Amino acid sequence: MSADEPLVRAIRSGLAELADPAKAPAMQAYMKSAMAFRGVAKPQRSALLERVLADHKLPDRVTFSATVLTLWRTAEFREERYAAIDLSGYRAYRRWQDAELVPMYEEMIVSGAWWDHVDELAIRRIGPILRADRAGVTPTMLAWANDGDLWRRRTAIICQVGAKEDTDTDLLTRAIEPAIAEAEFFLCKGIGWALRDYAKTAPEWVRSFVDDHPGLSGLSRREALKHIG
């Protein structure tokens, strides 16, 4: 695969120009990140990406995925990884958002291994692909729900956040159940989040789910019932 190296350089140089070294340490500390920050806030990064991506059109799917992964894999600052996520969801390339991209997102989820990376990828990348191709992607989410990797499991649990009436309750149930006995915060919180979100659409279903699963952690239960009592 061959990445669009001029685009990668344009993103990196743009972030370097926007860098605020005074803000970077606090951002790194807040995110508990081993990777350094440039100190670039999201609105600045978004404006940069909008400008740069409008000027650099990627010709095909292979170049698109190669450029995303190059920016991701070789990142020295966390904002470069955020930019890779932004590029992956850029509106001009929506036609390539299908099951063929799941392995790319899986790599980013597993190597990103923290909520600021994983949640965006789970909800805004994996989720839409799942809804567009349930037969192709549901088996992968079920496998991830039983995987040894925490972030694959969290992805399987939260990937339907925002799906509303399009939520597959069988998949939601089968994604949550393997994690019910776990004390891991990001799994418990993810379960609560997924149920709380779906409660906006189907409160009685969520109440019944909670009643039928007494092993849910206190955190998951509180989050699930937060707005429905």
Rank of each mutant, 00 (worst) to 15 (best):
residue 108 M to E: 04
residue 36 A to C: 04
residue 63 T to Q: 14
residue 48 L to N: 10
residue 222 R to L: 04
residue 116 D to I: 03
residue 39 G to H: 11
residue 196 R to Y: 00
residue 1 M to S: 08
residue 122 A to M: 02
residue 91 R to C: 07
residue 217 S to N: 00
residue 21 P to H: 00
residue 74 T to W: 12
residue 141 M to C: 15
residue 174 R to Q: 12
residue 55 D to G: 13
residue 168 D to T: 11
residue 146 N to Y: 09
residue 169 T to N: 00
residue 209 F to W: 14
residue 130 L to C: 07
residue 133 D to L: 09
residue 68 V to T: 07
residue 57 K to Y: 03
residue 175 A to N: 05
residue 197 D to Y: 01
residue 172 L to I: 04
residue 110 V to T: 04
residue 220 S to H: 06
residue 122 A to Q: 01
residue 194 A to L: 04
residue 82 Y to L: 13
residue 6 P to E: 00
residue 14 G to V: 09
residue 42 K to A: 15
residue 154 R to S: 07
residue 210 V to A: 11
residue 157 I to A: 05
residue 71 L to D: 03
residue 117 H to L: 00
residue 17 E to L: 03
residue 44 Q to L: 15
residue 211 D to A: 15
residue 23 K to M: 06
residue 160 Q to D: 09
residue 35 M to Y: 01
residue 113 A to W: 13
residue 222 R to P: 05
residue 71 L to I: 12
residue 171 L to T: 08
residue 163 A to L: 09
residue 215 G to Q: 11
residue 129 I to L: 03
residue 127 G to M: 10
residue 152 R to K: 15
residue 37 F to V: 05
residue 102 V to D: 13
residue 167 T to G: 10
residue 78 R to M: 09
residue 211 D to Q: 13
residue 33 S to R: 01
residue 137 V to D: 06
residue 24 A to V: 06
residue 180 I to R: 06
residue 137 V to L: 01
residue 9 R to Q: 15
residue 153 R to M: 00
residue 185 F to G: 08
residue 215 G to W: 07
residue 179 A to W: 01
residue 63 T to R: 14
residue 157 I to T: 07
residue 83 A to I: 07
residue 37 F to L: 02
residue 6 P to D: 11
residue 201 T to Y: 14
residue 177 E to M: 12
residue 2 S to P: 02
residue 130 L to P: 01
residue 210 V to Y: 07
residue 101 L to M: 13
residue 61 R to W: 03
residue 131 R to Y: 05
residue 209 F to I: 12
residue 78 R to K: 08
residue 122 A to F: 05
residue 15 L to R: 02
residue 157 I to W: 12
residue 161 V to Y: 11
